[in-house]
Design a protein around this nucleic acid. Sequence first.
RNA 1: GGCCUGAUGGCGGAGCGGUUACGCACCGGAUUGCAAAUCCGUGAAGCCCGGUUCGACUCCGGGUCAGGCCUCCA
Length: 466
Amino acid sequence: MKLHIHDTLKREKVQFTPNNPERVTLYVCGPTVYDFAHIGNARPVVVFDVLFRLLRHLYGESHVTYARNITDVDDKINKKAMDEGVDISVITNRYADIYNADMAALGALRPTLEPRVTHNMDAILHQIQALIDNGHAYPAEGHVLFDVESYKAYGALSNRSLDDMIAGARVEVAPYKKNPQDFVLWKPSKPGEPLWASPWGEGRPGWHIECSAMIEANLGLPIDIHGGGHDLIFPHHENEIAQGVCTQHGHAHDSDAYSRYWMHNGFLDFGKEKMSKSLGNVKLVHEMIKTTPGEVLRLALLSAHYRAPLDWTDELISQTHKRLDGLYGALRKAQDVPVRDVVVPAGVLEALCDDLNTPQALAELSALAKVLETATSEAGRMMAKADLLAAGAALGLLQGDPEAWFKQGAGDDLTAQVEALIAARAVARAEKNWPEADRIRKELDALNIEVMDSAGGASWKVKATN
RNA sequence: GGCCUGAUGGCGGAGCGGUUACGCACCGGAUUGCAAAUCCGUGAAGCCCGGUUCGACUCCGGGUCAGGCCUCCA
């Protein structure tokens, strides 16, 4: 099965061929750890988690290296540390841990590598020096700046020319810049801010250099796929390319010398009101998973194609919850069915290999659930269940215990209470005491529990609240 | 101003030049002590105006609308 992906740089869907199938490399821009992650931050995590799973499936688990950085040097981190009167590491460790826990709740696998800026300062200094040596950067007043005019292909990713950028520049130009579009590789720290020694004075790295330096140091150039949100195309990824290409000798105009493919996910839409801190409507993953299963959020994030905008609404979440109930419902009824060979069904694999067409893959999932529901023979049920589980695994879904799925949110006390009521109701039903059976059903209903009778006895679930 | 997306049934959301997307909801039927779940089935679409074509939701042109980026941002 050939993987095809939409390459932002080429602006078309292309066949993916790794530089080295024995070592496929993927890098995704990760969080700046100074606060909780919101649901928009989670989209690239989940999308590229699906890609990570797919690549591992195609090339073998040990042949894929996925790096997602943790930015632990930043103004906002400094401010928070200052406010709390602690070292920045207190802030960054705290929010990195929360981030990883939250993303795990969304079913995202841990990346192979999670490089941090503070652990890669040597690599950053090394790359800056190489850029200066290659004539692509220059020191000025304690800064080191990248000279954009030295890189002819600058603007290729975001499809804009240097002239356009200069014409449309809205930023105040620092006097020490040769060109208004030159960007910072190294800058002096303000008093009280963390700083590192460098040949150009004490200071800290600019925003873009960390990624290209960590990629070079941790993955090696060029990497296969670089991913991130749409908004990062310019200036972040554009500048990364400039740095990553120019740090190497002999490749000065070859964009592929840095990353061979570029993938960018679209944004979540939140209706008329843009999600922002000032409006107080930021949807934090940390909060959402308290009331909504992470798997529902994951499925919702995958319900639209990753490049398309996705309207994030309560309606979407409730629809998604019901859909997941349906899938787990099929598995619940097949709990007695043993599973042996688990192979990702062709339809799902085809969908994912077509530029991660998750809506199509999800449609396949629904079809497989129906096959499982309608299969009559034991062999048929076994195969259907295996298919559904394998398809789910490819998407990072349906790996939980179906029984537990429907009892989420029910503590031990409630569970015991429910079991007792159901036992009492079973007695009433055996005696055909329908008024009593219905009375107990109502009692359970008041507890937000739904009972489902079947030949083999009653099962129950916590009713969805969203 | 520059660059770039998108506009599909009640809602979410894909593929496709001519045949059912799929999910959620709705309606009819089966099943059920009641109900849920499930199954069977029906209904429901392609922003506007041109063009290409035997035929367009799908291709081309124009328009309208919405959104994103150009500054920290998934």
